[in-house]
Simulated assay, not measured.
Amino acid sequence: MKIEELQNLRVAIIGGGYGGAAAAVALDRIGVKDVAVYEQAPALGQVGAGIGLRPETVERFRRWGIFDAIAAVSSPSDHLEILSGDGQTVFAQEEWPNRHAFAEVNDTRIIHRGDFIEAFANALPAGSLRLDHRLVGIVDNGATSTLTFANGNVVEADVVIGADGIRSLVRSTFFSDKAPVFAGEHAYRIVIDIEDAHGLVTDDNPRFYMGQNGTIAYNLPLRHRGQLSYDITAPSDDDTWAPAITNDYLVSLLDGFDERIVQVARELDVAQVTSRSVYDIDPVDQWHSDCIVLIGDAAHAMLHHQGQGANSAIADGDAIADAFAQAGSVAEALALFQATRKPVTDELQRISRAGWNAEAVEDAFPGQH
């Protein structure tokens, strides 16, 4: 689209997470001036746990001019280790894919979700973030859309980007009414101080411990914060969104694991543990109309085993801006975006569902080299 068309485009982004924030920054960089990010939370907070931002994602930060801000609140990792639950066998120790694929070496950056969202919020165009805006209704008028929020505000936009997560209202209204799919797992996550980690943190590289019972203990060091992001993912038939837990229950999931991992579970304040059933969604056939499009988890929520959810959402934000820069109209841009991204995310959803077999980890990054 021509620069004057981009400058006059009214873009409403629903959701201020990874994908929504990335889309706002990327669109701003190509000249879109009227971008509003509508976030339902009344304030941005230090919620969540650790994530790994892959080399391709880091390269986008360099292009957008925000690498230094991200680097200041993250730690560099050069490889991933996958071990047996007891830590005695290293199934895989591999350098992050594409670490050397760019002009500068891009380590994966290990970062707390709250720090990441805050850094991105600071990079957004001034005045673009609108907190306390929960979407309750959306109408597709053909060339524009009308948005209604719980606080009473009504907004018209030329483009609506639905970055509103796995339970997306935008998706269920227009593109798919299929419910999220329970993976038969629970994930228990907490960020703890390194001094309470019993020696699990020795460098900046994540380590995944795989038990014979299907439990996986994910350890992502946040040494720049003096912390460890500690995650236990275990099989379960209970699809309760936020299951209740005890220390004894967590310990029972870790039979045969490295005693340090077990000891952390014994000592956790379970009131501070985020306890969630694990869900993804089946691939969505259509992501867009002529003026509305899905990105991130709204379009392709995937299981966390390959750590690709946040990275895929950020890639979507970059790709949507590229599509607007290349296409001749909004409708063409949204179609180009889906054609570019959907084959990639369909495969990542498939790989993430496959997970790993604790007895045969052949590749730490299947299909991602």
Rank of each mutant, 00 (worst) to 15 (best):
I51W: 00
G65M: 06
A69S: 15
G50W: 04
A69D: 15
A36V: 05
V47E: 00
V47T: 12
A49V: 09
T57P: 00
A41G: 06
L53V: 09
A43G: 05
R62V: 05
A69W: 02
R63C: 07
A36Y: 11
P55E: 04
V37Y: 07
R60C: 10
T57K: 08
A49I: 06
Q40E: 13
E39R: 11
L53Q: 01
V47Y: 12
L44E: 08
A49R: 06
P42M: 06
V47R: 14
D68E: 15
L44N: 09
G65Y: 06
F67L: 14
R54T: 13
Y38M: 03
A41C: 09
G45T: 15
R62M: 02
A69K: 14
G65N: 02
R63G: 11
A49E: 00
E39G: 06
Q40I: 01
V47Q: 13
A49N: 03
T57H: 04
L53P: 15
G45I: 15
A49W: 03
A43T: 13
A69M: 08
T57I: 13
A49M: 02
R54I: 13
F67V: 02
R62F: 08
I66M: 12
A43P: 02
Q40D: 06
E59P: 01
W64H: 06
A36M: 10
